[in-house]
Each structure stands twice: as structure tokens, then as C-alpha cells.
């Protein structure tokens, strides 16, 4: 799920950036530093949408750098255990398939794919029901439930399932 939240960060700025454009420099550096990063607590920082407040700077002993506490609003993407969302399938193999929902990767193991779907190898590996009516392959859109998350220093990785009511393929690229 995407959220709009306020975060705070201490920004260190070199004295050469002081002057009329101090604020712009600070904001530009903030965007460069945090956009695209990921933390376990807040998820992926997608975009900064506004600055709430820039506090008083504090000179660092010995270096001349000044640190400013900056409060900013941003759009973050944070997946939760138990959340249901839609994702695009990126890779299919006999272990299961990988899907992507925005910046996050989700793996669905073949144990968590309904039992009536069989793996078919070939140019376009896929999972298909015995009657061929439902097919999961690269670029399919699926609705899945997140059942586990693993948080890395710079990435969040999820485990999902489609073995539940109202989950599974919502759009098959081959049929349109």
C-alpha cells in the first residue's frame, strides 16, 4: 500500500552551499539522498512531495558542516503481511513465479499456487489449469495475498499466495 507520511532527517550541508540558495540546495540534496531508498520501517520512499519544516542548523564541531533537521512529506510504498494487492508476473519457473508490485518483488511458491494448476515448460513457461482456461505466465496480472516479508537493508522482499478465495489471475495477456 502507498502512504503519504511525514519523515524527518538530519541533513548535513557543506558551508559552500550557504547563501541565498541554501533552502534549494538543502531540498535538492534531500531528494537525491532519500528518493528511491528503502528502510524496513517505512518501506520504499517513492517521491518527496513537500517540505514541512526546516529547523535551526547546528554547526558540527571541527568540520564546519551544519546539520539541519528537515521534516518532509513523502509518498512511500510499504507492503504488509496479510495485505491483498495486484501485481504483474515477471518470471515463471518450476519453483513458482515472481511478481512485481511497484518497487517490491513478490515470490509465489508452487505450493501456494492452486493444486489444479500445473507447470508447463517451454519458451513461455507457465502454470495452467488442466482444462487450459486459466494461465499464469510472464506479464499476467494477478491478485495475491502477502503472507511474509523479509526486510533487507536496502530492499523488502515478499512471499505471496494465490491459494485463497478471490485470488489469482485477473488479466491474461494472451487472451486480450
Amino acid at each position: 500500500m502507498f502512504f503519504h507520511i511525514v519523515l524527518e532527517r538530519n541533513m548535513q550541508l557543506h558551508p559552500r552551499h550557504f547563501g541565498r540558495n541554501l533552502r534549494e540546495n538543502l531540498v535538492a540534496k534531500l531528494m537525491k539522498d532519500v528518493e528511491g531508498t528503502c528502510s524496513g520501517q517505512h518501506g520504499f520512499v517513492v517521491a518527496i512531495t513537500g517540505i514541512e519544516n526546516i529547523g535551526k542548523g547546528l554547526i558540527r564541531d571541527g568540520t564546519g558542516f551544519v546539520s539541519f533537521p528537515v521534516k518532509y512529506q513523502c509518498v512511500v510504498f510499504r507492503p504488509f503481511k496479510g495485505e491483498i494487492l495486484e501485481a504483474v508476473v515477471t518470471m515463471v519457473n518450476k519453483m513458482g513465479f515472481f511478481a512485481e508490485a511497484g518497487p517490491v518483488q513478490i515470490f509465489v511458491s508452487n505450493h501456494l499456487i492452486p493444486d489444479d494448476m500445473e507447470f508447463q515448460s517451454g519458451d513461455m513457461p507457465n502454470y495452467t489449469t488442466s482444462d487450459g482456461s486459466v494461465k499464469i505466465q510472464k506479464d499476467s496480472e494477478v491478485r495475491l495475498k502477502i503472507i511474509g516479508t523479509r526486510v533487507d537493508a536496502t530492499e523488502i522482499f515478499c512471499i505471496g499466495t494465490i491459494k485463497d478465495d478471490f485470488l489469482g489471475v485477473i488479466n491474461d495477456p494472451a487472451s486480450v
Binding site: F2, F3, I5, V75, F80, K81, G82, I84, I146
Partner: peptide, 19 residues
């Protein structure tokens, strides 16, 4: 944490969600 029971942490529960 479990979104099905709305256990998503206080910070996110109060935060503005976006569709």
C-alpha cells in the same frame, strides 16, 4: 503485523493511505 486484522503499526494506521 497482519493487515487483515489492521495490525499495521500505529504510525501507518494513522497515516494517510493513498489509492
Amino acid at each position: 503485523e497482519n493487515a487483515a486484522e489492521l495490525k499495521i503499526g500505529d504510525e501507518f494506521l494513522k497515516a494517510k493511505c493513498l489509492m
